[in-house]
Design a binder for these strands. Structure first.
Lengths: 227, 227
DNA sequence: CGAAAAATTGATCGACATCAATCTGTGTGG
DNA sequence: CCACACAGATTGATGTCGATCAATTTTTCG
């Protein structure tokens, strides 16, 4: 079974929405949540949105598909720091250092909106609301996030599934049944464990009727947020 | 041996410096890095700077002493998400939700500067540079951070020590010899492991002549950043 | 000084890592 | 279309690092 790329989502449910609106990227009437303009960028699975160290010129908003944010160690081995889902904004660290701090790689075919920093900095000195919207956006991103790679393997795997479910739900997608978008190896990397361990835990959750699983396609049954 | 609280540091080496300057909190001449005005807040070890869910009215900059940023689960058990050292800015998530997202607790006697959000939002609509400085500040904080709670216990403990050393160095403090500021229990919590394991690894690093250790006072010998 | 908290050390156990083999699905070239 | 190759995933056997249980020592502080 071939899975579709995750999304697309409506502009209305994107973190960058307010900023786009103030930049005039979105029709004010916004008929049914579709974007009006804005540079769309598409990536094939496995290709990079940007690399660590590269001069930063744009912010990106994920519209469709999933990506991974990766730290590449001195020896070249990679560590997945975060997975990025539709509605996320990428490259926000660019305002400060003018350089991207991580590699970001498409896990699936990806479509995202590109917003040049120049456009933003030109305008926020004139449009007060835009500065406020940017401060808002960055503020939310600045809260320390609890790592998924903590506790027992069961907690980690369940935590990842619930995290993804919540994100999708929040963006108006299906939070009960979705594609993981990642291989077991990538999940293992993200959760700081091994591929065999991930596989075993997924099968265990399946046997316990917490989830349905077929390849990367999951359906959450009794598994629910711990909140 | 009683350790002194970590710091104080000079305003010049604080993340909030530029913002303070633009708010007129610091003398422009800034003779020898001392602050001129600004509400100073002091905390005794163990007391809270603020709590999760509390209405947020201020940003804080740590001037002296260390704190921990804590997630409190539904069942009341706490998880240390980050440790905060002099020069760090706390409460940046306040712009967005107007509510603090974590508990922040002093590990030592702490002195910090308090900057009311009202003062900032009043002024950044008028002073363009201030908006830019805030965007800069938040931008840096928005980059995903690699968790210390990954890899072998040796990597985690060494990672913590090097992380602290680098922070102190960056703020003009001694990065070779400093106080951990935390109990072994708190280190264990932060690194997602157990107190006995932390103790054993610290002793091991000592036996291997990587560090000197006396209570919470560490000196790094051969241990160096992996960079 | 004496009590309580923090830290160290030892013995044992278990969850996850590691090593190894097999299975499944997907795309490719004959 | 089928055989094959290859990557991804699953499953089993065994080893090991860190958790757990327990006791003692050291430090802190009233």
């Amino acid at each position: 079974m071939t899975t579709h790329p995750t999304g697309p989502i409506a502009c209305r449910s994107c973190d960058l929405h307010e900023v786009c609106r103030l930049c005039g990227m979105i029709a004010l009437g916004e008929s049914r949540g579709l974007q009006r303009t804005g540079a769309l960028k598409t990536l094939r699975a496995g290709t990079r949105l940007y690399r660590a160290g590269e001069p930063a010129h744009s912010l990106f908003a994920v519209r469709q598909g999933m990506l991974k944010t990766v730290d590449v160690g001195t020896d070249g081995e990679e560590r997945i720091v975060a997975v990025n889902t539709p509605g996320d904004v990428l490259g926000t660290e660019a305002f400060g250092k003018r350089i991207y701090s991580h590699d970001v790689v498409a896990l699936q075919p990806v479509v995202c909106c590109e917003l040049p920093l120049s456009l933003l900095s030109d305008q926020y000195s004139r449009v007060r609301e835009l500065a406020a919207a940017l401060i808002n956006l960055l503020s939310r991103a600045s809260a320390p996030r609890t790592s998924l790679a903590r506790g027992s393997i069961r907690d980690r795997v369940a935590g990842l599934l619930v995290d993804l479910a919540q994100r999708f739900e929040q963006r108006g997608l299906d939070g009960r049944s979705f594609s993981l978008g990642m291989t077991r190896q990538e999940i293992a990397n993200l959760l700081d464990t091994r591929i065999e361990t991930v596989s075993r835990m997924i099968q265990k959750l399946h046997r316990e009727k917490e989830i349905e699983i077929a390849g990367q396609q999951v359906t959450l049954l009794s598994l629910k947020p711990a909140t």
